[in-house]
Write a protein that binds this DNA or RNA. Structure first.
Lengths: 197, 197
DNA sequence: ATACAATTTAAACAAATGATTAAGTCATAT
DNA sequence: ATATGACTTAATCATTTGTTTAAATTGTAT
């Protein structure tokens, strides 16, 4: 059945693209991973580039959706929003650990992917979270610092994993424990960032 | 003169590899950037891969050298060491802003590059800094968290730059100002991390 | 000046790779 | 049962790309 094949290809492409990146991925890699004939890739998706674009868009959507929906949850205080954002983000990434490296590597120099396909800028600048930030007297720059640090707490360990797993001699399990223990610390660090006001 | 040509190629390769990564870089790109005949690349450096390895090793050396030399400067307290590390690191990266993305992307899945070519693990575990950490009662895991956060404060903004320059609408100048202002904040954040003890 | 080695060039090669083609196969509606 | 269209396959194409080759040029020691 066609739709199943299409999904098989997309799932395989996700796996291969995320692990090797666009340039290093050969369409034959994807075909083999999906156990389909090479020509099917071009039958269902016009080209390697188109297939890649679809996957990148979906991954970006996953990432941005967490931020936007959280930033507009009016039932939460600013502090609660940030805590919740950290937890949801950590969940998403724990589930797909290759996502940060993949997105950040591929987007580097390809800003087109970000150009308001999601209206992220508007959604966010008009969000409840921003209003709360400004209401508490934070400047645009202070907000940027807090957001960058918050996301860094969660994402950076994954990105830099090879470096410090060598430095600190961590195996797979040790890394998991490290990440899980870190999650408990993040709220403290967020509070430190908010403390000034 | 041979040595000049060799340097021209290496500099061009650095530029192109850092901006596009190994897989997306064509040897012809490098030749054009260096304004040399394509065959010279293979004459001076056996292959694309060898040229890449040399550059990667040099870049890693630059990165690790800062950490190791700082960690063994016995004239500094732990707090001073971390402050100094942050400053030196920020300097290195401000000078070569593509370095973080390049190294982290390429090392991802290629752990071989890190495998004790530098003895980084030993140098660091026996360093004065580690002794100071342990002397103050920090656990291995607490140390890892501090180091990861410290490096993240400096590196993560560069890596995630495309994401939040879109979100926060930053141009080139705004980004520079942001980075420079951040540098002044980092000592405070480091103190927060150390505060527990 | 001459010979010899180092350097540089233009051209070509071989393999890899994204994409297409044309001939099948299968499911489904009539 | 058959025709139609969706799906699948094997084979092939055209281009890109890393590398090599052989000839030409340049520099240098004698």
């Amino acid at each position: 059945m066609g739709i199943e094949t299409e999904m098989k290809i997309k799932e395989a492409a996700k796996k291969v693209f995320r692990s090797k990146g666009f340039a290093a991925t050969r369409t034959r890699d994807i075909a083999e991973e999906a156990q389909i004939n090479l020509a099917l890739l071009n039958y269902y998706f016009k080209s390697k580039q188109q297939l890649f674009n679809i996957i990148m868009m979906e991954d970006l959507e996953d990432i941005f959706q967490v931020i936007i929906s959280n930033a507009n949850d009016k039932s939460l205080s600013l502090r609660e929003k940030l805590f919740s954002l950290a937890e949801k983000y950590a969940d998403v990434i724990a589930e797909k650990p290759e996502l940060p490296n993949f997105i950040l590597s591929e987007v580097h120099g390809n800003h087109e992917f970000l150009l308001d396909h999601f209206g992220i800028k508007e959604s966010l600048s008009k969000s409840d979270m921003m209003a709360q930030f400004f209401g508490l007297g934070f400047s645009q720059e202070e907000i940027a610092n807090i957001v960058v640090n918050l996301l860094g707490y969660i994402i950076f360990p994954y990105i830099s994993r090879p470096m410090y797993t060598v430095i600190f001699n961590m195996d797979e399990d040790a890394f998991s424990r490290f990440i899980n223990n870190r999650r408990k610390q993040i709220p403290e660090w967020i509070d430190s960032l908010l403390q000034k006001k």
